[in-house]
Design a protein around this nucleic acid. Structure first.
Lengths: 227, 227
DNA sequence: CGCTTAATTGATCAGGGTCAATCGTGGTGG
DNA sequence: CCACCACGATTGACCCTGATCAATTAAGCG
């Protein structure tokens, strides 16, 4: 698996550390039950709809997309996850969502049953699980708000602002995902995303250096749009 | 306050019981910390964005909408809640969402701090809080999916199907909320909701007896649309 | 350096938003 | 009890944005 050799090239160790540190700052203490480290190259499925929910994951490095495939062939991306974030934890016995790597990734795999068992006697762990769920909830609600936004440009602006916090390096935003991924996250087509980006560039709000490197030239303009 | 005299007329006791029973069936045991019962007439604010998150609620009877007011004047409804459901629990110190009564309601008010304190030594309670959060998460994700749906008719169909489970009586669906509420929940305009309903009636999928009484004549047709 | 795939751009179209008028219903007061 | 009133819902006409289809350009990779 050649991809194994270039793990975490999409995100530098410095970035991964920064992301994890930010996460730790929000938590009193890290989520630390024992789990297995796992490395997966870009573009692979981590878990799929219909599978057993006996495991969940925490990203160590890389970017993951969590999504659902609709019967009409479309794909809706529920969330992107970066270092420090937990994903794949669901209530039912069968998964409703799939997860895939967008870049080469490494993450920790937890056994759900084992963690839940441990939580019965570990108040701190119990609280962390609750907080994870509540944070995911807040994120899902803010995603709903994003999807309900009127214009395409507003959605894209809001998306860019979200990602400034997650993957900025020297004023340049690194988008780990394709235009298709962005479109599926925002409920737009690839063309609409592209047009919004081009429009932002035309009016001097951003500068594009390749499709995935975005320099934010006028953050205020984006904030006005995203509101 | 005359409305106090007709509390719970919008939902019969039988309906409220059915709803609560359904909820209990999903839980091993009921959510049972102590709280204060409160009655609020229709159309009142229960809590608002920016307020302290020191309380949360469980619906005993009636219907509640949880929503966010956007800076452009629009309103996005995050969820409707019926008997047995918990709402108003948030992670941050300040509320991001408001809650309002759609019908006359009664609910139980819990003190967040007190419940969290109790959860430290009560494993079952701790688990219930987690499960509530996870269930809310699943509901928020399914709402995202709804908002990402292509057509107006598909959204309305999915909405009707959701509500068959929550408020059906003798094959007739009672909608507790206005067209505007439905529109704000689905990210549509009132006119689009109305047109979809009329269209369903025209092709014989439903029959309307007043705007809020819907007889489902062809559930399968709705399911095909909602997919 | 060329090839393959992703991204951009353009032209056209359809669905839902908007504005405006009408209808119906439930609630009120005579 | 009935007529009226006010508000919510429906319907219609038109417009605008984003989807679709299609062609071109750019970029990453061998």
């Amino acid at each position: 698996m050649k991809a194994q050799a270039r793990i975490a090239t999409a995100f530098s160790p410095a970035e991964a550390l920064a992301a994890r540190t930010a996460w730790l700052a929000k938590e009193d203490e890290a989520f630390r039950p024992t789990g297995t480290v796992m490395e997966v190259p870009e573009g692979r499925e981590i878990c799929a709809e219909g599978q057993d929910t006996d495991r969940f994951y925490k990203v160590v490095s890389g970017v993951v997309r969590v999504c659902k495939f609709l019967n009409d062939g479309r794909r809706q991306i529920e969330a992107f996850h970066v270092a420090g974030e937990i994903f794949g934890l669901e209530l039912g016995a069968e998964r409703l969502l799939s997860a895939e790597t967008i870049t080469d990734c490494s993450f920790i795999v937890y056994r759900r049953h084992s963690v839940e068992q441990q939580a019965k006697s570990d108040q701190a762990l119990s609280r962390q699980l609750f907080q994870h769920a509540m944070r995911s909830l807040a994120q899902a609600q803010s995603h709903s708000l994003l999807l309900a936004r009127r214009g395409a440009a507003e959605k894209v602006a809001a998306f860019l602002l979200d990602w400034i916090a997650k993957a900025t390096e020297g004023g340049v935003l690194h988008l780990a995902m394709s235009r298709q991924d962005i479109a599926d996250y925002l409920g737009l087509t690839i063309e609409s995303v592209s047009r919004s980006m081009s429009q932002f560039e035309r009016v001097g709000t951003i500068a594009l250096a390749g499709a995935r490197h975005v320099r934010i030239k006028n953050r205020y303009a984006l904030e006005m749009l995203a509101a």
